[in-house]
Every structure is written in C-alpha cells, then in structure tokens.
Simulated scan of single mutants.
Amino acid sequence: MRRADRLFQIVQHLRGGRLVTARMLSERLEVSERTIYRDIADLQSSGVPIDGEAGVGYLMREGFELPPMMFNRDEIVALVAGARMVRAFGGATMARAAEEALMKIRSVLPEQDRHRIARTEIYTPDWVISDAERLIIDELEKAVEKRDVLRVSYRDEGGQNSQREIRPLGLWFWGKVWTLVAWCELRSDFRAFRLDRIATMEHAGRSFRPEPGKQLADFYRMFELQGACARPPNHEAPCERTRAVA
C-alpha cells in the first residue's frame, strides 16, 4: 500500500468518532505501530485535527471533512457500474481494489450524492469467473507489469497440448472470455491465449526487455492492418484473420 493511501485510510478510520489505538490501525493496515505513530504525527503537523497520544489512542475532532469530490449523476453511475463489473469479471486483487476505490469515492462525496451509489441499479453476476481463473488473471497482470517470461501448458481448440515460453504483453476481456496477448517463443509470433485453456503456468525465472517487432504496439499495428475481430479467438491466433497456427 502506498503511503498516501495509508494516510487516507487512517483518516477514514479516525472519522468514526471512536477512540482508535495505534495497534488497531497497525493490524488493519499491516504496518508497524511505529509507522502509525509517524503517520499520525505527520497528519497532525499538516493540520488534520487528530487528538490523542501514544499508548492511549486517537480520534478525529468533529467537523473535519476532506474536500468534496464532485461527480455528476452519469459519472457516479459509470464508476459504480465499472467497479461492479471489475468485481464480477476481474481478478481477485482487481475485485478488492474496485471495492476499496468505491469506498474511497463514497467517503468523500457530498452527502447529497452518496445515495446515488446505492441507487445505481446496475448489477453483474458473480459466478461467471471461477476462483482459479481470477488467480490466473492476477498473476498475468503482475507478469505483464514486471515483464516476466512465463512457461505455460496450453490446450488448443482441437484439444492438443503444447508447452510454450511466452512474453505476456496485455490482457483482453471479450465479455465472455479473457485472452492474453503475448509473444510466443515457439511460434516466433504474436498469439492470443485463452485463459480458460491454460492448463499450467509458471515463471521461467527471467524477464524480457522490449524489442522492436515484439511489443504490444507492434501487435496493435498488425491487428489494425488485418482488421479488427468481431469475436474472441477460437485458439491462440490473435484473431481469425491472422495466419493459421503452425
């Protein structure tokens, strides 16, 4: 958790009107009590009206409010719907982050706008993505960010398994399935792997550097030249207009 996020969370916990100890905050935020003491001292020095002392507890004086965050009706609906969709279709980490983001937005909205969140009647099912697939989404998102080479066992449309070493470049969600766009070392070409056909996945123990012709921007250029797909791929080719899988 970033320090700015931790300071925000401390303020939210102290706004409840009850005495909160440093130990309680350290357990909730998963940091040491010494870190909490430093954070509270910094908040106090910046003008946040926190009363209390170490060993006793802290509370926020009444009347303190964070500057209101202004959203119009359509923006609130979009944020709530987006967070619920991520919670339904994203990875486990994404789902938690979406819920926390919505909580932050709710806490700083003006009172007259908070009811709009509860009154947004847009819902998504929570059974579409399996727990196993949620974990894969999280792992792949991290691998994309860190540029980790992955070793996967992949089952194609015909049920044939193959072992691949791939460079993960980006995740695509098609409304029903997720695919991973990657540079495939076996095929020496871009491929889009359906996540529900990845049997096993592990880190190859090395990372990769961007190379001309093997980056996501190169894939997009190729994709645009060949024409956009109207539906997700049936196998690991990026779309049905790409050349056949070798």
Rank of each mutant, 00 (worst) to 15 (best):
R2H: 06
R3K: 12
D5S: 13
R6K: 07
L7F: 15
L7Y: 15
L7K: 13
F8T: 13
Q9W: 07
V11N: 01
Q12P: 00
L14C: 04
L14G: 03
R15N: 11
R18N: 05
M24P: 00
L25A: 13
S26M: 03
S26G: 12
L29N: 07
E30N: 09
V31L: 11
S32N: 14
R34Y: 01
T35F: 09
T35C: 05
D39K: 03
D39V: 09
L43A: 02
S46M: 06
S46H: 01
G47S: 11
I50K: 13
A54P: 04
A54E: 15
G55R: 07
G57S: 07
L59D: 09
M60W: 04
M60I: 01
R61G: 08
E62G: 02
G63N: 03
E65N: 01
L66P: 03
P67K: 08
P67Q: 03
M70I: 13
N72C: 08
N72E: 15
R73A: 05
R73M: 14
I76Y: 05
L79F: 12
L79E: 06
A81V: 06
M85T: 02
R87V: 03
R87S: 09
F89I: 08
G90P: 06
A95L: 02
A97G: 01
A98R: 14
L102N: 07
M103Q: 15
K104N: 15
I105K: 02
R106S: 08
V108A: 10
L109H: 13
P110D: 05
E111C: 02
Q112I: 04
Q112T: 01
Q112K: 10
D113Q: 15
D113R: 08
R119H: 04
T120N: 09
T120R: 02
I122G: 06
I122T: 10
Y123M: 09
I129Q: 05
A132Q: 15
D138R: 08
E139G: 14
E139R: 15
L140W: 04
E141K: 05
A143D: 12
E145Q: 09
R147N: 08
V149L: 14
L150N: 13
L150I: 06
R151F: 11
R151C: 01
R151Q: 05
V152F: 01
D156M: 11
D156C: 01
E157Q: 04
G158F: 14
Q160L: 00
N161S: 13
N161G: 04
Q163W: 07
P168E: 07
L169A: 08
G170F: 00
L171D: 03
W172I: 04
W174S: 15
W174C: 10
L180H: 02
V181Y: 04
A182K: 11
W183A: 00
E185M: 05
F190A: 02
R191K: 04
R197W: 10
R197L: 05
A199K: 08
T200N: 11
H203A: 10
H203E: 13
G205R: 00
R209G: 09
P210K: 05
P212H: 00
P212R: 01
G213D: 10
G213I: 00
Q215G: 12
L216R: 09
F219Q: 10
R221Y: 01
M222N: 11
M222R: 14
M222Q: 14
F223V: 00
Q226T: 05
A228H: 13
A228I: 10
A228V: 14
C229K: 03
P232V: 04
N234E: 13
H235R: 14
H235F: 14
A237T: 12
A237R: 14
P238E: 02
T242Q: 01
V245L: 08
A246I: 07
A246C: 11
